[in-house]
Every structure is written in C-alpha cells, then in structure tokens.
Write a protein that binds this DNA or RNA. Structure first.
Lengths: 229, 229
DNA sequence: CCAAAAGTGTTATCGCTACACCCATGA
DNA sequence: TCATGGGTGTAGCGATAACACTTTTGG
C-alpha cells in the first residue's frame, strides 16, 4: 500500500435502516413507514435516515428509532451492512441495517401516525423499496438465532406476561408450535422468571399467573451461556 | 421525514478491513500487515482499504483480499460495521469488517512479504491500530458460532486432510480439546467426509487416512440445518 | 353444571460423555 | 521388538419429545 492519505478516496452516503419488530399476541410484526422522499416516495419502507459526520452509526440508528417511536431504551443491534452499487436508484448509498425490538403496546399510536407508520404481519409484508425485504428476512433469521440463546424475547412482551403469551411469542418467532407442558417446564427450569401473585383474568375464567423476567438472576447465569429454547 | 433529496447529507469515507484466518496445524492464526500510511504508519493492522464509489462493498473486500493474498475464491463474509466517530484519528472513517478463511499452506509467501504481512497466533497478537483488536475478537467469536453449524472449517485445511488435523482445527477454534473417539464418530456420522485410499505417512508409521469434504453430500443435507459439532 | 383455558407427570428415545485397548508399521 | 500414533465400542446419563387428564371459575 502506498503512502497516501485519506483525501483522495471516495466519500459515500451512509444510511441507517431499522427493522423494528413487535408482537401483539398473534403474530410477529414489523413497523414500516410510507417513504417521504424521492425516489420511490409513497412506497412502504423501513424507517431510515442518513448518518451524519458527527455521530457514530449506533447513535444514528438510535436517533432514527427515537424519531419514529418516541421511545427510549429500546433493544437494538446492528444487523448487516448493505452496500451493492445499485441498491438505491437515487444514488450510491450504503445502508447499515439495525434491528430493534419494542413492546408494541407501549408504542405511541400518534407518533407512529405522524410518520405514516404501520405494523405489518411478517407473513403479509407489502412490497418494499430497494433491498428492504431482504433486510427484513435477514433480521428475522437473526432474531430466531438470537432468541434461542439470549433473553431478548422479553423485549417484545409487556413487563408482566403469562406463560401462554411467552409461548405464543416463541411460536411466532419460529413459526411453529410447542408442547405446552414441555415449554413450561423448560422455561421455568431456567430460573429466570419470577411468578407474581397477580393473575391475568381476561382470557380465561381460571386466570393465568403473571410472570416477570428476573434480570438479576439472568446476569448470574449469563457467563455460562444459557440456552433459552 | 421532509421531502428532501440526498444532496444535503454528509458523505463519509468507507473502509473495509479483513480479518484473515489461517490454520497451520498448531493454532489459529490471523494475517496482519504493517500499516503503510499515516496515521499510525508502521504499526500492525488488519489488511484494509477504502471502498470506491463504483464498487459494492463485498467487491471492495474481495479486491483487498486478492491484493494481499493473490488468492481467488476465498471464503469470506461480512462481520460487522464499525462506525464510532473517533475510531480513526485520521478522519471520520466507517469501516466494514470482513472475515476470511484461507488455506495457509496455499498462500504465497512472496506476495505476503510484499505487503509486510505476517501470520500471528491469535493468542499472541501484537498491539494493533484503532479498533482492530476488537474486530479480531468479534471475528473469532463469529467463527466459533459459524463453525458449529456450517462446514466452513474445511476452508482452513488442505483439500485432503486427516481426522486428526480436522480435530486439531476444531480444538484450535474453540481453544479446548475433544475426545478423539467421540469426535471421529460424530464427524463421520454426518456423512459429509469421503475417505481416500491414500494415507498421510509423515507423522506416524501406521499412517492416517486422508479425507476430503464432500460438498455434494453436504448440499443434500444443508436444508435441514446440519449441526457440525 | 358446563365451557374454556390453566396447570401439571411419566415414559421412551436420542445424543452426548467418559473411558482403554489393540493395530500397523518403520526404525 | 518396540515405540509411536491410528483406529475403534460400550455403558450411563441427561435432555428432549410425545402424550392426556384434572383444576378452577365465571356465566
């Protein structure tokens, strides 16, 4: 490599796109927005934006997420960087995709409306711009992998939840179904759930106990590489 | 989002850095180069370069890899995008890290020398520039995950190899040791190795059979999500 | 009393782990 | 013949998967 400095190299537009997952009890959802700029204005798109020179890319992603949801402290991680030359017909833009997990029932409907955002079932996604469909597919795969070994499923549920809700979430993520007895035994045996005295009485007469995720107990076990499912 | 176009946004330098792994029978190695430009000229660094406007980022990574090794058709995948504002004191550079697996004995020593490149045992890495140490650490973690479920370990071995070489590789990747009988049984039961009639006679009098990875058989099994180890 | 969801145990199978001896050969 | 690494089988254990009935209670 020659002794050149940085000045002679190309600078490129850097975007961030967020795959925002939610769970409403029935299926896994992704939050999409109607794109507000050309090209492809008016089509469905992931929430995104450009990264500024003065901020780190993780900060850029966090900024964009706050913009759309108004929510702070959202679980988020980088997914992949998409950099094909022609991925965006509007110019040479390299996009870094992040995926985020939010508690759908805590999201603010008005803020979402402001951005023309809408939840879509992952199995019924509309046509999306650019390579966004590929991003969602990859994000779903990553979520499946991650959820098997890390307690991030709870990010998609209310703070207190029933075992059936938790099972429903895992079933939605994996698009399969589990035996109730085996699931219950396994998840409780991890020792990271705390049962409350309170019951959820909406969906049954008997009522189902609420549980909360016990982050402290989890931290103690974390080092050993806990297996969730 | 307002109806703006792309022109008003920041453009940023985009770099690619490659974590190149090799295995020489004793330990897992990474290929590092002496940096040829300021800042930090002369220090150890991952092989890297800037992405051009006219090429995709995967192509940029492939180009840089060929530059250093002279080798084509190398296994490579994107690792992570590093974009902290201050990661490079020479300017605002976002770097996309790739990791690659090469057959160390097929590498061309002269080409490596041209670039001041040297293999380092992963346990004895020198001080490296910027966030390159973090990149290597992450790459190693990813390699461990990946190797458990995908047949990419073979990329680090000669085309024909003995079972002991293969076991040595897995032991190096996981920094542990396996029981020879259990390892042999498991790896052979996958049905993706083909035994040759030829024996390796260097390291023992009896001689050990050579095996080759049977890519066709693997492809047949791939859909079901084979578990390597 | 009945409908509807909650909660709970046992058994068979499979995969993993631990463990030790004989084989083939060149020197 | 002997030293060296190559090659092989078995038994115990723990995890997983399959499977159905009883409990609670509001209407």
């Amino acid at each position: 490599m020659a002794r050149i400095d940085y000045k002679h190299h190309d600078k490129i537009l850097l975007a961030v796109d967020c795959i925002i997952f939610g769970f409403d009890g029935s299926g896994l959802k992704a939050l999409l927005v109607k794109r507000g700029l050309e090209p492809e204005m008016g089509k469905w798109s992931l929430m995104g934006g450009f990264a500024n020179k003065e901020e780190g890319i993780d900060q850029a992603a966090a900024r964009i997420l706050v913009q759309l949801t108004g929510m702070d402290k959202i679980y988020m991680e980088q997914l992949h960087c998409f950099g094909d030359v022609d991925r965006d017909p509007g110019g040479r833009v390299v996009s870094i995709a992040y995926f985020a997990l939010i508690k759908i029932e805590e999201s603010n409907g008005e803020t979402l409306d402001l951005h023309n955002a809408k939840w879509f079932d992952l199995k019924k996604l509309p046509t999306m711009i650019f390579d966004h469909k590929q991003m969602v597919r990859l994000a779903k795969e990553r979520l499946q992998q991650k959820v098997a070994n890390h307690p991030i499923g709870f990010e998609l549920l209310p703070n207190k939840f029933t075992l059936q809700q938790l099972q429903g979430l895992y079933e939605a993520v994996y698009e399969t179904s589990f035996d109730k007895r085996n699931f219950t035994r396994k998840i409780l045996s991890l020792g990271i759930l705390q049962r409350l005295d309170e019951k959820e009485k909406e969906s049954s007469k008997k009522g189902a106990f609420y549980y909360v995720f016990d982050k402290k107990k989890y931290k103690q076990l974390e080092s050993e590489g806990i297996k969730m499912i």
